[in-house]
Nucleic acid binder design. Sequence first.
DNA 1: GCAGTCGTCATTTTT
DNA 2: TGACGACTGC
Length: 754
Amino acid sequence: MQFEAPNPEVVALVAALNPAQKEAVTAPPEHRLVLAGAGSGKTRVLTHRIAWLIAVENVSPHSILAVTFTNKAASEMRGRIESLINVPVRTMWVGTFHGIAHRMLRLHWKEARLPQNFQILDADDQQRLVKRVLRSLDLPDDKWPPKMVTGYINGQKEEGRRPEAMQDQGDYAQRQLARVYSAYQQQCEANGLVDFAELLLRAHELCRDNAQIQAHYRNRFRHILVDEFQDTNTLQYAWLRVLAGDRGVLFAVGDDDQSIYSWRGAKVEHMMRLGHDFTGLEVIRLEQNYRSTGTILKAANGLISRNNGRLGKNLWTEDGEGEPIQLYAAFNEYDEAEFVVNKMKSHLDGRCRYVDLAILYRSNAQSRVLEESLIRNRIPYRIYGGLRFFERMEVKDALAYLRLTTSRDDDNSFERAVNTPARGIGATTLERLRALAREQGTSLWKVAQGAGAALGRSHGNLKQFLDLIDGLARDIQDEPLSKMMETAIERSGLREHYKKEKGEQAESRLENLDELINAARGFERPAEDEGIAPLDSFLAHAALESGERQAGEGEDCVQLMTLHSAKGLEFPIVFLVGMENGLFPHQRAVEEGSLEEERRLCYVGITRARKQLYLSYAEVRRVHGVEQIGSPSMFVREIPPEYIVETRPRAGILRPTFSQPSRSYGSGGGYSPGSNYPSRGGYDRAPSRTATSAATANDVPGGYKLGARVRHAKFGEGTILTFDGDGDRMRVEVRFREAGTKWLMLAQAKLEAL
DNA sequence: GCAGTCGTCATTTTT
DNA sequence: TGACGACTGC
């Protein structure tokens, strides 16, 4: 680019960029695909690109659309752009796919054939609705699992297929599914409800079919920037194409090696197709990594090179090699957790804080054992995942009342609110209402209004409920949002209801209700929501941004999460646990033939680590209550061995044999360390190589085996980890479930074999 | 309407 | 093994 006008702002904009980043940021206004490796400054390029367009290319922020997948990414992007340049960027559209789609639908609700106050269904709401539709069609839950049916509906929508466009073909099951889809969609339309996939589908159809709107947005959005492009699904991609038309300039950033959501409809192939659909597209690779040590990067490169059909990328760093990756073979999951905790302690002795430590695992079930160890050792931790604020029962209950005040035909909210708290409107009454509503093709609310004597005794109760909602709507309409919330919570009787509930959960429920009032008070209606009632804006916000994963963010504690939720994050020290065939790669994935995606998941995990990476696996693990023998993950073998060091804090321990019948999972076979491994006896195909003593490696002289489960009168149940000494002085180290790890004199401990 | 009981199920989850 | 949902009996 020409720098004839050395605007200091512009100079500063590119000064700190590396050549590849600079190329991307200063590229002429043409299509670009930026292949941004992990830790290569992806967000930086994206934000600087936008700043460049505005400050140098004189593009109006008004002409820019920047799309992300998460709210977090969107708000981070906006924040960083604003701090980069001193130009108001309020007119720029930055948001998630769903957020942007929602915004369009609010603006063009008429053209989209939606009621003005349409409500958004979150995943849970959608599931409930599907259940009701299944019931109304007399399809039993067990034959038609709601989860699967919901998945089917979302899949259809993601492929852009409407029920009416589906030909009557296929077998019985297919026809039934199509029937459910159709009925579900009808229900949504009648109730003014829009699920997540529908937001995208409607917005796509709106932009595709309405010439005026299409022209408007094509004319407006000259620059479309997309983050995490490898995660786009069919619909999102189609929408981007429609919006871009033949004049919009696309700037896509992504990493095919980090595509881990194909099971949710994401298609990496879009990255490969981009060159066909956007002529003149050039690819820029960001391969210099600013996050991890050379060792970690080489390990990641080595692993991912096993995948086929990659766009190709090799991460490198100017920094040093750093520490080798440590691999620990644990006896079982308890030993593995103990290893993690002990290593953590050794790091915490130095200048490392809790937040610098993360434990990553393939599936949520693995967290429990780790938690127990952390609690025992008084290490504060935080688990990502679980319910988010706006997904909590009590919060959804309260919101249902408010949704009813603004949208009476919202059956989902009606069903939720009508008998919570209990007001004598039971299943029978509801069933009658549903039947009537079905017959008349209208909402529960309307049916309830006219139901009258047909309902017998509950008529009065129902009437009271209707009056409650009407009265609530009337009395809060001019109030500020927080007052609305407060009034709804009080008058609905929800607070009383949850006050009566016992247990420690009850208290947190009440706190959450208060927190909801706070959230309403602190809610600032986004500028673009002008013209939308504050309540509708808030309700949409609640559905689209389900809130924090768990309280206590920013506190100094160890982070636990699945590999999927770790994407996009980084930690100085990472423990990647459960590296066993069957668990990771997961058996299901292997069966479904998605091994490459599992490998990418492993790649994501490895590249989260900045300074130090630990891998561990358990030789025996309890899975669904059954002890299973595991073999080290094939991915461990696929990391070039020169970067791995096996750690054994105790010398002379060998692999135990297990006499109890166990079914083996995974088919990866044994683990044969490459020649570069530091040798460690007894850890190969021969399961019972002799150790240093005369006894076999696996037997603790005295009748126990390493890894055996024992009970101690005082400490309870535990697992034998190791032993030393012999004869009368022989000691065993036992990891007790509750009491921690202890050395015991075998002669005195009176252990009982289990 | 609720508590207790039984049976079933067990990757991953940005919106 | 353990969590959750559906069912049953008062």
